[in-house]
Amino acid sequence: MTPETIYGATGIALFAIGLYHALVLPSALRRIVALNVASVGAGFVMVIAAWRPGGGADPVPHALVITGIVVLVAATAVALALVRALHDADTTETDDTP
């Protein structure tokens, strides 16, 4: 067993946990958190791909994960803004067409 197998399995497991909950959880806010968990799982796979036993990791996957984190926080911010706006719309409007 190596750190690679341990964290590789962790990454895939996190992705699966996030994916499943993003599909079934009954609240939009929760699904957003689940997508963030899944994305961390994908990040683990890339960090594993960069890792070398003797040190001296590959910088390219590191750059990709940083980009991925920034892209995801941007999307998360938009999704959360929609959650807030829906809350405001539902509290001000009596009903709307489904």
């Binding site: 996030g18 939009a28 899944a38 994908a42 999307a75």
Partner: peptide
């Protein structure tokens, strides 16, 4: 919101695939 969540899910799946390919 549903459109964005579907797109984010798609993006995360693509990211995992890219990680595995790399």
């Amino acid at each position: 919101l549903n459109y964005l969540l579907a797109g984010m899910l798609g993006g995360v799946l693509i990211l995992l695939g890219i990680g595995l390919l790399f």
